[in-house]
């Protein structure tokens, strides 16, 4: 028994170190983002705490030898691309998952083909797409060649989320709606969709975040108008400055706020139902 207890401690300490290993770089990056500017470099010691590099990211700092991050338009592009990708891959994910509710011949082939989209490395897919675009004579653009690959990548995630949701879905409510004289299309709108909505929300979150951060596929197929990750990758080549750290902190916060918005939307839809219910209970008592 003693051995188990000591094993528990060893593993516990190991896990704590592991978490430190996971988060260490973030913490260090966060600290260094408050380095003094513009002379302070991307390393310790902190000369003086300042928010200079954050101002630098937003273009508020006076011009200096450190070039501003090329993020303005890139950010707009990335957000637009992520939004379009989210819409298309969520719609396709829902449709495909809906089809998978009934067994059909060839379902295994279709399933694995779709899943392949999230497994095949971005480099390979990007390369293949470039080859095709080059042969067909299509110009490479973030809104064309890169967009279709973003959907190939995020659509399997949306599909898997919806598949899991439909697995727990009780079909009898749809049958009840049909037997009340409601058409299949309206049944989907008024019954199926409201019930699967939390799943749709998760699928959207996945698609948006993955597309927003997508990098290897876009590198090949994005063309000359860069998206955010490509712009950042471009700065890797040259000497790095703490403005990248400040940007890293901001973009991490952005990822988390997306997660938070998702959480709020989800709680709201649950609470709304509860409120409508509890309001009535007060009437009774």
């Amino acid at each position: 028994m003693d051995k188990v207890v000591s094993l528990r401690w060893i593993l516990g300490i190991f896990t704590a170190l592991f978490v430190l290993f996971l988060y260490g770089p973030f913490i260090v990056m966060g600290i260094l983002s408050f380095q003094q500017g513009p002379e302070g470099g991307p390393q310790f010691p902190i000369i003086e705490w300042s928010s200079y590099w954050y101002q630098h990211v937003f273009g508020l700092a006076p011009p200096s030898r450190v070039a501003p991050l090329p993020i303005g338009e890139a950010l707009i592009r990335s957000l637009t691309l992520a939004f379009a990708t989210m819409v298309v891959s969520t719609v396709m994910g829902v449709l495909t998952a809906q089809a998978f509710r009934r067994p059909f011949k060839g379902s295994a082939v279709v399933f694995y083909s779709v899943i392949l989209g999230m497994i095949v490395p971005g480099v390979l897919l990007g390369l293949g797409m470039v080859l095709i675009a080059d042969q067909v004579g299509v110009a490479r653009n973030w809104w064309s060649t890169a967009f279709v690959l973003h959907v190939v990548y995020t659509y399997p995630f949306a599909f898997l989320v919806m598949l899991a949701i439909f697995n727990r879905f009780d079909e009898s409510v749809e049958e009840a709606s049909l037997s009340l004289g409601v058409s299949p299309a309206k049944t989907f709108r008024k019954v199926t969709f409201p019930i699967i909505f939390p799943g749709v929300l998760s699928a959207m979150l996945f698609a948006f975040t993955l597309s927003y951060d997508e990098f290897p596929r876009t590198l090949f197929t994005g063309g000359s108008d860069v998206t955010m990750p490509i712009a950042i990758y471009g700065t890797f080549a040259v000497e790095i400055h703490p403005n990248l750290f400040a940007f890293g902190v901001l973009s991490t916060l952005f990822s988390f706020s997306l997660l938070a918005i998702y959480g709020i939307l989800l709680t709201l839809s649950v609470r709304r139902q509860r409120q409508r219910a509890s309001g009535l209970q007060e009437d009774i008592s």
Partner: peptide, 25 residues
């Protein structure tokens, strides 16, 4: 353990630079 996956891949790569250098953390 999963949350770091949620953040930008490039930022995660970048975050190692100040960790590992000669004057790194």
């Amino acid at each position: 353990c999963v949350i770091p996956f949620w953040t930008s891949f490039l930022i995660r790569v970048l975050a190692w630079r100040p960790m590992l250098g000669k004057e790194g953390a």
